[in-house]
Design a protein around this nucleic acid. Structure first.
Lengths: 212, 212
DNA sequence: TGTACATCAGTGAACGCGCGTTCACTGATGTAC
DNA sequence: TGTACATCAGTGAACGCGCGTTCACTGATGTAC
């Protein structure tokens, strides 16, 4: 049964249907090949609807990305609670697995963000918008890293934001190879080892206690 | 003075002039926006010359990439000789600096390879060609890592190829953020710290000796 | 409760542009005798 | 040493296609009285 919606409710709904379709088409086609026509059609509208809800293709993607980052920060926040009783090494590995899981859930997403980043880097305004989203996301992750560091009495020679950036960079960089070999195996294990090593090598004990 | 060249010498020269122009245009415009027309023109030819020397845009880029990887392996091989007398920590940092220098020499190059990777990942044949080049390059770097490991009596819980991949992944991932903020400072130091931590955290001593 | 007008989300079509690839052709180089 | 033919690197133009953005318009919703 079709419920009667106010103009703004209807618009909000159009917007979210467009976002859902955009996500699907971007994932399937990649940023450059994804066509607004296709996105609009899959959402059941015409291209004009996209322009009525977003400034254009870039803005549509930014909206998608913002949504994505909010969800990821929330997911990692939940993870942190789950890891409360683990020792430091298990905590590192839990973090690695969570990041890897986010990758495996949507391998194409990471490639998409890479494409959008290089694209955005060529336009000062877009570049600064994307940087804003990224740094906000990384700040969220940095907070979580600080909680873990405090919990286990360690510190880093870099800001927690850089530690977050570096940890994510490992996956972002590896992904560029992984997408060339979709059949590759054992990646979860390899990644866990790498992240654990990275964080282990970076952290130093804050007080006299032994920190493995 | 114009020297008289044989047909094959002339062709070889055309090819290398096209490659040089391609490199310049790709760096300036990015993979997707770089136009073969522009490349041909900067080399002093028409588009047909490109198709007479390469199968197309993808093949042209692959040729460029192959050249690049050969140079990088050679450069790292030279570095290794220079690091012969340093201790392990200094060796790690020397490696980090060398990779960072390769980035700073041409920041755009790394973004270019990222774009080409996501592009290639959508085509099975191209994907497999690029993977071939990548893995060959990584195998070259892996050899060097093994030399260092043997020199300092350490080993890794991962294959040396994966260690090479991980080390490069750090820069490839960080680059995606760096290009959003061309003004950013202190990156050499941050990167050095990260690579040192990664390799330190990963390596374990092979014999009873202390390995810092 | 109903009427008249204003608003605006979404339509549909046109605009403007770029670009990878193909192909018949040319003219200089190479080869055979 | 010279002639006749073959080869082929590079030309120039056309082909074929895709796509982001703009804009005048429509018709349903919202507002004022």
């Amino acid at each position: 049964m079709a419920v009667r919606l106010s103009r703004s409710e209807r618009k909000e709904r159009t917007r979210s249907e467009l976002l859902a379709a955009a996500r699907a088409v971007f994932l399937r086609e990649g940023f450059h090949r994804a066509a607004l026509e296709q996105i609009a059609e899959e959402a059941g509208f015409t291209k004009g609807a996209v322009y009525s809800n977003f400034r254009g293709k870039d803005d549509l993607f930014l909206a998608l990305l913002e949504e994505h980052y909010e969800q990821r920060v929330a997911a990692h926040r939940r993870l942190l609670a789950e890891l409360e009783l683990r020792d430091l090494e298990e905590t590192r590995r839990g973090i690695a697995r969570a990041i890897y899981d986010a990758y495996e859930r949507d391998p194409g997403w990471w490639a998409l963000v890479a494409d959008f980043s290089t694209h955005a880097s060529r336009d000062p305004h877009l570049r600064s918008q994307l940087r804003g989203l990224r740094e906000q996301f990384l700040a969220g992750m940095a907070e979580l890293i600080e909680v873990v560091a405090a919990r286990h009495h360690v510190a880093f020679p870099l800001t927690s934001q850089e530690v977050a950036r570096g940890t994510g960079a490992l996956l972002r960089g590896l992904m560029l190879d992984w997408i060339l070999d979709p059949e590759g195996a054992d990646r979860a294990v390899v990644f866990e080892e790498m992240v654990a090593a990275f964080l282990r090598g970076l952290a130093f004990p804050l007080d006299g206690r032994r920190t493995p």
